[in-house]
């Protein structure tokens, strides 16, 4: 079990390095998925199957789905097909595949050795344990999390709004300096004459 932990942790680090060093975002996402899977295996090795499952469902799953959606929406014809064919070069998928294979081997060898609970020291963290903790003493945190998500949602919906926006009045700073703005009817725009060194 310790070997599995260290091996998958190493895979996570390597895959994350792959994410950071890869100039192409699509390739980086491939590494990211491997990295998340490796972290999930770390959770399994630590005896937290629930967290591991969540990691796969929420992160790897959600990111995969989003990725697929984006590809679907951006699918723009022959050029994209060519591009995708070009992306499917072995050197693109070889790295993530090797890392994922190591993870798979680790997982298989773990399963081969038998009952997980017997190998992990200490009690496992089950879904039941997480649930009783969250909806028992930590109920407040769940509520706060809900409020946090509400705020995030409201922020996103407000900033993403393309409503009836008043034409943004040109900021005084953005006008060319000097006497170029005489009598343009903007009563509230101060002239920038003689304002030196504003906003150092």
């Amino acid at each position: 079990m310790e070997l599995a932990f260290y091996l998958s942790a190493l895979m996570a680090v390597l895959a994350t390095l792959g994410v950071m060093t890869n100039p192409n975002p699509v390739h980086a996402v491939l590494y990211l998925v491997v990295s998340l899977l490796a972290v999930a295996l770390v959770f399994f090795a630590l005896g937290a199957p629930f967290a591991g499952a969540l990691e796969i469902i929420v992160y790897a799953g959600a990111i995969m789905v989003l990725f697929v959606f984006v590809v679907m929406m951006l699918n723009l014809g022959q050029a994209t097909v060519d591009q995708e064919r070009q992306w499917l070069q072995p050197r693109t998928w070889l790295g993530p595949s090797v890392l994922a294979t190591v993870l798979l081997l680790t997982l298989v060898s773990l399963l081969w050795r038998g009952d997980i609970q017997a190998v992990i020291e200490g009690g496992g963290l089950t879904a039941r344990g997480v649930g009783t903790l969250l909806y028992g003493p930590w109920l407040l945190l769940v509520e706060l999390g809900a409020l946090l998500l509400l705020a995030a949602l409201v922020t996103a919906s407000h900033v993403g709004r393309i409503g009836k926006v008043a034409a943004p009045s040109p900021a005084p700073r953005d006008l060319p300096t000097g006497a170029s703005t005489p009598a343009n009817g903007q009563a509230h725009q101060p002239s920038t004459n003689g304002v030196a060194g504003e906003d150092v």
Partner: peptide, 18 residues
């Protein structure tokens, strides 16, 4: 303000709770 104004207070209250 021409755009939606009400959300600001919602955000303000969430932040105060934090």
């Amino acid at each position: 303000f021409q755009n939606a104004r009400e959300e600001f207070y919602l955000l303000l209250l969430c932040s105060a709770a934090g």
